[in-house]
Nucleic acid binder design. Structure first.
Lengths: 209, 209, 209, 209
DNA sequence: AATGAATGAGCATTCATTCAT
DNA sequence: AATGAATGAATGCTCATTCAT
């Protein structure tokens, strides 16, 4: 019956505050002060729950990766065919105005840039990317297999689809106004489908005549 | 009498130094000190040639955009068919290890993140993106026309190709190790070609008679 | 739990330190470093309690204006006649070596010069001047009324007396050595008195009958 | 027939430029750059003609003192009586909107504040003040003598008049809007005249009867 | 005489982090 | 758990002055 620690909730609040602040200020300009203000906390308390600012950022990367997986799971929950799961993959990330949560998208773009220079961020970022790649490759492989196609290109195709989505996030955050409306989800689906359609048939094991 | 101005050269040196420093430190960590050191100049001199750090960044955005156009022009100089020009477009950006100049690619990723929050950077970034989009759309339209296809989707296809390339830059900078080798240029070409191949024929104005 | 705020005291200390430093260094040379040193604080702490150096200056203007009012109130506390109050007005500002606190006088002169170019300082300065003018005009009007004189010139006379005092501050700060000893308070009193004495009688409402 | 040195003219131009810039920027903000720009010269040339920025300021003090004397001489040129000369003294400084040249007045106020802390400026300032005092004392003595008054108070009266004028400059520069219109010249004259009128008669050397 | 690039010291300000309460 | 004052290093930027041309 001891008083419950509220550490987990506080940490979540702080991570969420970083997301919000970072989305329109970037990482360096997201000061502990501004994060604290956003979270309705005091600067000292931030460092009570996190050792450093960098640690909050790492937590945010994991949080966003987790969120992305959850969102896919939700979208895929009613999918029964490989194609439906592929659609779920893409819609989970790109549907509804190129990403349902603009703040999360912008923050992800900022994280991508931080990953360029901060090894620890890069590692967390790469874990997230790996996870996404694995999901995409699996779904794409299923689609290819279902159509009786070769699966040699599943991996590069997954990579290409992921690159497309990352780029769409970037452009949605920094150049939304000049991009065609709603191109992202539609083109992602169509490009992958047409790519798969044009793939050669899988070689039969028994080529007897 | 009057001394010859070396401002243009100095500015180019400084912009180049920012590119180098920013590629592995990000924008905020690219201090005037570090830029000066990289360029072999003194901090005071940086501000003699540029009013602010932000102004150097804007100059870098323009410089990279200019460089991209020049690189495409070079690649396209021997292209005679629409398909060759499309290849030139993609190779100019993605060939040879996902972009010939890793520093420029990383810097571009960082610029993309800065464009999220700095209006002036965003404007310069959008100008560059617009220019790229225009080139891609033109080349894609040529390809479609040559094949007798409808051109309705030229714009979203250009947008999709650009998103792909931006995302490939991002992943090349922050997750090179976990991406399939050489997927980018090859997949870009193939996806666009297969998309075009699957496009419906252009409606004939007068089909019978 | 929560710590007690010492902000008000710290702010007062900082303002007081600015007064001291500014009195012999001017405003621009009163660096945050020197203010901090004078106050026995660190530069960072200065900016914890004040947003900017300019904000300290504004606080100082208000502080000096407040001090002037308090000093007059103290001098006037024993005054019962209009003349005594007039004397209190003048002595509060000019008695004892042209102002009891040389630092405050010098700082006020420096503030006057800053008010020429800094709009925010000018506003605070003008508020202080307005307040002084109002007090002087009221006291002078009382003196005139008591003597049965016209009060038309109360306002310009108050302005003249204030100009005299401001000028006396200036000269006491920058040319004390070459000014006659103790001229200021004595001459201020005498000039105002002789001016009032020479004013025409108030017009009687109904003079005859 | 050697080429004439244009040093004197250049120096005058530079001093004049400092006056203009200082009038609305103060002394510290009047950078060599801004002075050069105002004068249509280059920064390097400023230091060819003056050893330091401080030297320009000293030259300006002398220039303004000289100007004041010249202006008085001009106003007094047609004065034949002591009273007319007194009027000339006052009008030369305060007539026409409290000083004919607002820039010069503001610059003088700024100089007064600099004199508080810079010994060299203080010396030049005190020379100018001494000179003014001497002129005023002489004219006032003449007026007193003409009226057969004692001249004991000529010195403090001159000091008081000077203080008034300095204060009027200060208030004209920083608080013009809240001061009564045209009070300065009129009140200066009236106060001095009434003061003189109320002075006691000079003691007769031969008091015989 | 004149130019304008170059220097270097100094400034206000920011901010992650620490710590007494 | 929580507060908010305090620190100190770092940053962008300014500017008088110097100097090669």
């Amino acid at each position: 019956m001891s008083r419950k620690s509220n550490t987990e909730q506080r940490r979540a609040e702080i991570v969420s505050a970083l997301l919000a602040v970072m989305a329109d200020q970037g990482y360096e300009k997201a000061t502990i002060q501004s994060i604290a203000k956003q979270a309705g906390l005091t600067p000292g308390l931030i460092h009570y729950h996190f050792q450093s600012k960098g640690e909050i950022l790492i937590a945010l990367v994991h949080s966003l990766a987790q969120f992305s997986r959850a969102r896919y799971a939700y979208f895929a929950s009613e999918a029964t065919t490989p194609r439906e799961r592929l659609n779920a993959c893409i819609d989970a990330r790109l549907a509804k105005g190129e990403g349902a949560n603009p703040d999360a998208v912008s923050a992800w773009v900022v994280i991508g840039a931080e990953a360029v220079r901060q090894p620890e961020v890069r590692q967390a970022y790469q874990e997230a990317i790996s996870s996404e790649l694995a999901v995409l490759e699996e779904v794409i492989t299923e689609c290819l297999t279902e159509d009786g196609k070769r699966t040699d290109n599943a991996s590069p195709l997954a990579a290409a689809l992921l690159a497309f989505m990352e780029g769409a996030f970037q452009l949605a955050s920094a150049a939304r106004d000049i991009m065609p409306q709603g191109y992202a989800a539609r083109m992602a689906i169509e490009m992958v489908e047409r790519y798969i359609d044009a793939e050669p048939e899988k070689k039969r094991r028994s080529s007897r005549k």
